[in-house]
C-alpha cells in the first residue's frame, strides 16, 4: 500500500510547486491550459513512425521546468511510473510491424520506430500535463474550467473531491495499517473483510458529506456556486499562447531536427 503515501506525496508536491510565483505561474490559467492542449493535439497528430520531428517538442517542457523552477527528478519519476502500460502496448509494434527500413546505413524494423515514437510522445504528454498542474494549481485549473463554460456543478464537486482526497487517503491509509497489523503476512485485505472495510470507510464518507453540506448551508449555499471574479486575460498571456502554438505548428510542418541535421551534415534534400 505504499502507493497510498506516494499519492499523498505527489499531490502535496504539485501543490507546493503551484504556489511559487514565477512568470510561468502567473500566466493566465486558461492560456496555459489551451497551450497544453494545442501541444498535445499537435504532438499526437504526428505519424506513428515519426521520431526526429517529434524531438523539438522537448523544448516546451524544458522551458517550463527551467523558468518555473520545477525539480526535474520527481516529474521524471512520475513519467516513468506511467510508462509500463505504454510499453506493454507499444512493444507489440516490433512484433507486428517487422517491415525493414533503412536509416542511413542501419537497417531497422519499422515497428521499433513506432515504439520509440510512442515512448517519446507519451513521456512528453504526461510531462506537460503534470507541469500544467505544477505551475497552475487545482484552484486556478478550476477557474480555467469555469471560464471555458464547464458546468458549475461539475467544477464545484471537482474542487470538493480534490479537497477531500487528501483526508480520505490519510484515513484509508490508517485503516489499512491497522488492518495489516492484525493480519500479518497477508497480501491486501481479505475478500470477506472487503465489504465491511470499504463499507465502513464509505459510511464515514457519507457522514462527512452530510456535515460538509451543513457547513456549506450555514454559509448561505443554495446550490449556486459563486466562484468570484474571473481573472483578466492580459496581452502577455495571449502572446504566450500564440507564440508557443505557432512554434508547435511550425515544428509539426517542418522537421526542425532534420533541418538542423542537414545544416550540420551538409546533406540537403
Amino acid at each position: 500500500m505504499s502507493n497510498i503515501t506516494n499519492s499523498l506525496y505527489d499531490i502535496g508536491l504539485l501543490d507546493d510547486l503551484a504556489r511559487k510565483k514565477t512568470f510561468i505561474h502567473r500566466i493566465h490559467p486558461v492560456m496555459k491550459l489551451l497551450t497544453t492542449i494545442v501541444y498535445i493535439v499537435v504532438l499526437t497528430s504526428f505519424e506513428k513512425h515519426e521520431v526526429s520531428a517529434v524531438l523539438p517538442f522537448v523544448f516546451y517542457p524544458v522551458f517550463i521546468i527551467s523558468f518555473a523552477e520545477i525539480p526535474v527528478v520527481p516529474v521524471l519519476k512520475r513519467v516513468l511510473l506511467v510508462q509500463p502500460l505504454i510499453i506493454g502496448i507499444g512493444i507489440l509494434n516490433p512484433l507486428f510491424d517487422t517491415y525493414i527500413v533503412m536509416l542511413g546505413n542501419i537497417a531497422i524494423s519499422r515497428g521499433w520506430l513506432t515504439f520509440l515514437s510512442i515512448l517519446i510522445k507519451s513521456s512528453l504528454v504526461v510531462m506537460v500535463s503534470i507541469l500544467l498542474v505544477a505551475t497552475t494549481g487545482m484552484d486556478r485549473v478550476a477557474v480555467a474550467l469555469r471560464m471555458l463554460k464547464i458546468p458549475k456543478v461539475f467544477v464545484l464537486q471537482l474542487l470538493l473531491m480534490y479537497r477531500y482526497i487528501w483526508l480520505l487517503i490519510e484515513e484509508g491509509f490508517r485503516m489499512a495499517q491497522a488492518y495489516s497489523l492484525r493480519a500479518p503476512g497477508q497480501k491486501g485485505i481479505k475478500m470477506n473483510d472487503l465489504g465491511s472495510f470499504l463499507g465502513q470507510m464509505l459510511l464515514r464518507a457519507f457522514d462527512r458529506a452530510q456535515r460538509v453540506y451543513q457547513a456549506m448551508n450555514l454559509r448561505g449555499f443554495t446550490g449556486e456556486y459563486n466562484a468570484g471574479d474571473v481573472l483578466k486575460v492580459r496581452f502577455r498571456d495571449v502572446l504566450y499562447f500564440v507564440a508557443w502554438s505557432l512554434f508547435f505548428v511550425i515544428a509539426r510542418i517542418y522537421n526542425i531536427a532534420a533541418l538542423i541535421g542537414a545544416l550540420f551534415t551538409g546533406v540537403g534534400r
Partner: peptide, 16 residues
C-alpha cells in the same frame, strides 16, 4: 473548510 484555498473558503459565505 471545503474550498481549495484559504481565501476561497473565507470568501465562500460572503459570495453566497
Amino acid at each position: 473548510l471545503f474550498m481549495p484555498t484559504v481565501y476561497d473558503d473565507v470568501a465562500f459565505g460572503p459570495r453566497n
